[in-house]
Write a protein that binds this DNA or RNA. Structure first.
Lengths: 107, 107
DNA sequence: TACTTTTGGACTGAAGTAGTCCAAAATGAA
DNA sequence: TTCATTTTGGACTACTTCAGTCCAAAAGTA
């Protein structure tokens, strides 16, 4: 699975590589055709369930697809707010580390 | 300015280091006391304007405060979704890079 | 021309959330 | 214990955001 610039581009590529129309994929995933079109255009976000369906249908790793999706949303979020993106991500990663150790049973 | 585990902890520390009650800081920032309490407890998010007011009042860098805040929100967002956090941040940073070059006038 | 796909506008219902108000709980001083 | 102040959080409102739907126009194809 190739990582495109956005989640929408990624799933669009998966679909076009198989020469399938939106309608057909949408039916397979059991979602509205227009909804799928919007997801490909990044104007609607997929739910976790839809990401799972994508992964199954296109036979790609759902972890990779989830990374593609989450990285999109956090990238846009940080972009909106001026710069400092790499600092934000660096600190965020430390916080995740900290939160993880807090969650798992200590010792 | 010390970076605490969360944005709330960070501003709480700034306040307690000066031995000020919530009421007093809230008045200075012109927000509800309860609102400030909630921000310190991370149950409400500060607006950009409030972050600016914090920075001014406590005489700390608004950039640092913004990083403290943004890293909080993206950390929680990624935490909620299983693991892969570092991969997500890595990809997100690449996307930000790409988006930045797209925004600024090419060539 | 006729058919299919793609795109996007407009809307709805639901979910989320900033901000307010108030009162109970905690803290602390006398 | 009492009194005053601070801290905490519940409940509510108003507002915004957004997934999901429906539909129709535009674009593409034969």
């Amino acid at each position: 699975m190739k990582l495109e610039k956005t989640f929408g581009d990624t799933v669009k590529k998966l679909r076009e590589d198989k020469n399938l129309p939106l309608r057909e994929v949408a039916e397979a995933l059991n979602i509205d055709t227009s909804m799928l079109g919007k997801i490909e255009k990044n104007s609607r976000k997929p739910t976790k369930q839809i990401i799972e369906k994508f992964a199954k249908f296109f036979k790609v790793s759902s972890k990779d697809l989830t990374i593609a999706f989450l990285s999109d949303t956090v990238a846009y979020q940080v972009m909106e707010e001026e710069d400092f993106s790499s600092e934000v991500f660096k600190v965020a990663e430390e916080k995740v580390e900290y939160l993880k150790t807090k969650k798992s049973p200590e010792k």
